[in-house]
C-alpha cells in the first residue's frame, strides 16, 4: 500500500510539473508570440519594448525564466501580476477559491441527488413510458450549453418576472457564507441549478446504463433465486455495483470543476471565483496569474484522481487486492 501511495504521489508531481512546463511553453514559446509586445501594448516603441523585457525579465533564457517563476510562485510565494503591478497571485487565488468551492459543492449535491434519483427511476421502469422520458430529458440536459442556460436563467429571472416572482433573485455577485448564509444561498441558487442540470443529465444516463447492465448480470439472477425482494435486488445489489463507476466520475468532475471548468458559469453569473480570475488573466495575458490558477486547477484535478483511486479501493473490494 505504501509503495502504491508513493508511486501515485510521484506520478502526480510529475504531471503537475509537466503541466507547468506546458503552460509556460504555450505562453512564452509558441512561435510568433511576443509577451513583451502584449504587455507594452500594440503601438509601443522599440525602446519601451526593451524596457518591458528588462523589467519582466523576458530577455533571459526560457529555462531560467521558468525557474524564476516557479521559485516565486511556490517558494517565496510572492509572484505578482504583470498587469496590475503589485497584486500578488496567491492571495488572489485564495480569495477566489471559496467562491468556486461554494459553487461546485452546492451544485454537486444537487446533481448527485437528481442524477441518481432519475437514473434509478429510469432503470427500474425500463420499457415503460417513464424510462425513455427521463432519458430524453437527460439527453436534452447534456446537449444544452451550460453558459447559454445561464443566460436564459438570467433572462427569465431578471426581466419581466423580476418584479414579481423572482424579485428576490440578485442579478450577479457573491456573498460569503460566513457573512450571510441566506444571501450566500440566494446568490448561488441559480448558478447551482444551472451547473447541476448538465451533470444530473450525465449521471442519470450513466447510472441507468450501468444498472441496466447490472440487472443482466448473473449475480442478479442468483439474488432472485435466493428469494430476495425486487426492491432489495435493485438497491442493495444492482445499485450498489452500479455506483462504483459513478463515484469515480464524481471525483473527476468535482476536481475538474474546482480546477476551473466552472469558468463559464462564473462568467455568466458574475461570480468572482477562480474561473473568473483565470478568464480575466487569460484575456490580459497576465502570465503569472494564469500560471497560478492553472497550477491550482491542475492540483485539484490530480488530487481528485488520486482520491478516486483510493476511494475505488474502498467501494470496490476487487481493487483492494490488486493495489
Amino acid at each position: 500500500m505504501l509503495r502504491f501511495v508513493t508511486k501515485r504521489l510521484i506520478s502526480a508531481v510529475l504531471v503537475l510539473f509537466s503541466i507547468s512546463v506546458l503552460v509556460f511553453l504555450i505562453f512564452f514559446a509558441t512561435p510568433g508570440v511576443n509577451p513583451a509586445a502584449r504587455i507594452a501594448g500594440r503601438s509601443a516603441s522599440p525602446a519601451t519594448l526593451k524596457a518591458v523585457e528588462a523589467t519582466f525579465g523576458l530577455n533571459r533564457p526560457i529555462p531560467i525564466r521558468y525557474g524564476l517563476m516557479m521559485y516565486h510562485l511556490f517558494i517565496k510565494q510572492d509572484l505578482s501580476s504583470y498587469v496590475n503591478i503589485g497584486d500578488k497571485v496567491i492571495p488572489q487565488i485564495t480569495q477566489a477559491a471559496p467562491v468556486t468551492l461554494s459553487l461546485v459543492f452546492g451544485a454537486a449535491v444537487l446533481w448527485m441527488v437528481f442524477g441518481v434519483w432519475a437514473g434509478v427511476i429510469a432503470a427500474k421502469n425500463r420499457g415503460r413510458f417513464i424510462d425513455p422520458f427521463i432519458m430524453f430529458v437527460g439527453i436534452a440536459a447534456v446537449s444544452i450549453p451550460a453558459y447559454w442556460l445561464g443566460e436564459v436563467v438570467q433572462l427569465i429571472t431578471q426581466t419581466s418576472l423580476h418584479s414579481s416572482v423572482f424579485h428576490w433573485v440578485p442579478s450577479t455577485g457573491f456573498t460569503p457564507l460566513s457573512q450571510n448564509p441566506l444571501q450566500w444561498a440566494v446568490h448561488l441558487l441559480f448558478p447551482w441549478l444551472t451547473l447541476a442540470v448538465l451533470y444530473a443529465g450525465i449521471y442519470a444516463r450513466v447510472l441507468r446504463s450501468e444498472m441496466v447492465n447490472a440487472m443482466n448480470e448473473d449475480y442478479i439472477r442468483t439474488a432472485r433465486a435466493k428469494g430476495l425482494s425486487e426492491r432489495r435486488i435493485l438497491y442493495r445489489h444492482a445499485l450498489r455495483c452500479s455506483l462504483i463507476p459513478i463515484v469515480s466520475l464524481f471525483g473527476l468532475d468535482i476536481g475538474a470543476l474546482i480546477g476551473g471548468s466552472a469558468l463559464l458559469i462564473e462568467v455568466v453569473f458574475g461570480l468572482p471565483g477562480v474561473g473568473m480570475l483565470t478568464y480575466n488573466s487569460l484575456t490580459n495575458l497576465d502570465l503569472p496569474v494564469i500560471m497560478g490558477t492553472v497550477m491550482y486547477g491542475a492540483f485539484f484535478v490530480v488530487l481528485a484522481s488520486a482520491v478516486v483511486d483510493i476511494l475505488y479501493a474502498v467501494i470496490d473490494p476487487r481493487v483492494r487486492v490488486v493495489s
Binding site: D218, T222, G227, H237, C241, I244, D316, P317
Partner: peptide, 20 residues
C-alpha cells in the same frame, strides 16, 4: 419458495456472487 424451499446452484461461480 425461491431460496427457501428450492435452492439453486449456477454454472459459473465466478459471476454468480455479487462482487462487492
Amino acid at each position: 419458495i425461491r431460496g427457501g424451499q428450492i435452492g439453486m446452484i449456477f454454472q459459473d461461480p465466478m459471476t454468480a456472487l455479487t462482487p462487492v
